[in-house]
């Protein structure tokens, strides 16, 4: 028997969890089959914060000469990529890596192609300071925003405060957390019980995706197991991936397993955009990749027919969520 006091505590706990839960996810619509995303307690979502983050994301004011915004590289119609081999920032300076999609970024646990950055808030500082991206400084950006009446007003509404570096990164991260994509034809087929959503060829492709080990790394609802591995792209990597930071030879050529959602529109592919098309990607995997001592065991040569290749590509293409890339 619970004492009255315990009952009260219990009730209180229920209320606590209940309120926590609701306001935690209130601003995100979680698609069928997707888990509830975790939102950091110190940066809960709010409508005004998300709106402010969105305005910042699309505003070239964030770069030193006000020429590029986050959305210059993370373009919504390409599922927040740019269609370029490697990205281009301020004064047309080139970045060494290919712009990754921000699709379902709220589910990521680590950031950047090599996964070395631990939080979305912190990640937002990277392009602001990178010489080849915004080439700016967050303290100067803060001063710029403090002089801008529209931003002063928005920060006031969202935080009851003037702009600070912390609030800038919190709002941008909040907006990014809303970039959830889960209404592709695959989702309609798999999670929404619409068996007519995929063609026979696409279903064939899905089976191949499982049979050929793709699903081991590109796993789960978001087509990524979140690991940082070597998929045998090169014998000698110019970009060492995670090893750049750890200096551990076992991390040489290791990159984050990217989501494959919206893959149709996020080419060119891989950390350096070296593969132009999905056909080239399948070509790479069918050869079992290049020899590298860190290459993952699951990358093994396979033989499939031309029509099977086509099936696999058409399956990958049904991961496109047209509402995600058109409504923003």
């Amino acid at each position: 028997m619970l004492s009255n006091k315990n009952n009260l505590v219990f009730l209180f706990l229920i209320c606590f969890f209940f309120s926590f839960d609701t306001d935690k996810n209130f601003y995100l619509s979680v698609p069928a089959g997707f888990p509830k995303p975790e939102i950091p307690a110190e940066n809960k979502l709010s409508k005004v914060k998300i709106d402010l983050g969105k305005k910042l994301f699309f505003d070239p004011l964030l770069s030193r000469d006000s020429s590029v915004s986050c959305a210059s590289c993370h373009i919504p119609k390409y599922a927040y990529t740019d269609g370029l081999r490697t990205a281009e920032g301020i004064k047309k300076r080139t970045v060494t890596r290919n712009t990754p999609t921000l699709t379902n970024i709220v589910y990521n646990k680590n950031f950047l192609r090599d996964g070395v950055n631990p939080s979305l808030e912190e990640q937002a500082l990277v392009p602001i300071h990178e010489k080849n991206e915004f080439d700016f400084h967050v303290l100067l950006l803060t001063e710029r925003l403090k002089k801008n009446p529209a931003y002063l007003d928005l920060f006031q509404k969202a935080f009851g405060a003037i702009p600070t570096p912390k609030l800038i990164t919190q709002s941008i991260a909040s907006f990014e957390r809303t970039l959830i994509s889960g209404n592709s034809r695959y989702d309609q087929f798999y999670f929404q019980n619409n068996s007519a959503a995929l063609s026979t060829s696409e279903i064939n492709g899905m089976e191949l995706f499982k049979k050929l080990n793709c699903v081991k790394c590109h796993s789960g609802f978001n087509f990524s197991n979140g690991q940082i591995v070597n998929n045998g792209l090169y014998e000698n990597y110019q970009d060492m991936g995670k090893m750049r930071v750890t200096l551990n030879e076992n991390d040489n050529g290791c990159f984050k397993v990217p989501t494959l959602r919206n893959i149709e529109v996020t080419g060119p592919y891989m950390h350096n955009g070296s593969l132009e098309s999905l056909e080239e990607v399948i070509e790479h995997y069918s050869k079992g990749g290049m020899n590298h001592k860190n290459k993952h065991d699951w990358i093994k040569p396979f033989e499939i027919s031309q029509s099977e290749k086509e099936d696999l590509v058409s399956f990958l293409k049904c991961l496109t969520d047209s509402s995600f890339i058109t409504n923003y």
């Binding site: 070395v116 303290l139 570096p165 930071v245």
Partner: peptide
């Protein structure tokens, strides 16, 4: 420990 110029932190690995 705040933001510095020149930087005293690296944004990539925290």
């Amino acid at each position: 420990l705040g933001p510095k110029s020149p930087p005293m932190d690296w944004g990539w690995p925290s």
